[in-house]
């Protein structure tokens, strides 16, 4: 039986060689460490154990290269941990994103109200214009037909301008729909960030939460799926409760 065959057989049966136990212990020690940086000695020990587990199959890999790679990995993980802390993920999911969504909703409502007002005035201008024409036509003695034709042209020009204003009001619908798309994207980001908070929170509170509570929390996060209808999914209070459980 070759080395590879032995390793495959060991993996298939779940049996662990003594080297693998040592490697697992070393990895557990690093995972449970509260230190921001992993000491060089610990990384070197880890490399040696990895080499032992692979029975010298890594002999062709330069120790320094491997150390540099693992060092980079450690730096990356450390940086990601720091970013997570400084980014205040809970605040982003709980306050910042809902705030941004609310601001965008307010923009849609304000432009809708303003557009309504513009159209009210357009309608008023059209009725004034129609009334003006009637009054001009009812003047006695009648206005000279050529002069009336000129006035009519001007009134029609005015009507065309009002039509252009109506056309321009299209912007409200189009921008409204685009903003709704942005709100939808924000909600998706909120869901992802919240999911990340829950996953990290669960990892930290592994011992204090039972399986049922963990499953419920993950289900709650999955319910955060796009703009929800009233009475469905989680409301802000539910989200706050969820975050309070975890943070």
């Amino acid at each position: 039986m070759t080395d590879q065959d032995q390793m495959a057989a060991a993996m298939a049966t779940g049996a662990q060689a003594p080297e693998e136990n040592s490697l697992q212990n070393s990895m557990d020690a690093i995972a449970n460490s509260n230190e921001e940086m992993i000491p060089r000695a610990q990384v070197e020990e880890l490399i040696t154990l990895v080499k032992d587990v692979f029975g010298g199959h890594t002999a062709s890999v330069n120790n320094n290269d491997l150390f540099a790679e693992i060092g980079e990995l450690a730096k990356f993980i450390n940086g990601a941990k720091k970013d997570l802390n400084t980014a205040k993920t809970g605040q982003i999911a709980d306050q910042d994103i809902p705030d941004a969504s609310n601001q965008l909703d307010a923009i849609v409502k304000m432009t809708e109200a303003a557009t309504g007002k513009i159209m009210d005035e357009c309608e008023r201008m059209q009725s004034v214009q129609a009334m003006l024409r009637e009054r001009l036509l009812s003047i006695e003695p009648p206005i000279d037909p050529d002069a009336m034709a000129g006035i009519d042209d001007s009134l029609n020009d005015m009507n065309t301008s009002i039509t252009f204003v109506y056309e321009a009001c299209n912007f409200q619908d189009v921008t409204g729909q685009r903003i709704q798309k942005v709100v939808k994207a924000l909600t998706e980001i909120e869901r992802q960030v919240l999911r990340m908070v829950v996953v990290f929170g669960l990892a930290q509170k592994e011992e204090s939460l039972d399986e049922e509570t963990k499953a419920e929390l993950m289900e709650d996060v999955d319910l955060l799926n796009g703009p929800q209808l009233e009475g469905q999914g989680l409301d802000q209070d539910d989200i706050d409760d969820l975050l309070n459980t975890l943070l």
């Binding site: 557009t115 309504g116 357009c122 309608e123 109506y166 056309e167 299209n170 409200q172 619908d173 409204g176």
Partner: peptide
């Protein structure tokens, strides 16, 4: 969108 209905109706 009520705005859109008004625009179409006016046009």
């Amino acid at each position: 969108f009520q705005t859109m209905r008004r625009i179409i109706i006016n046009l």
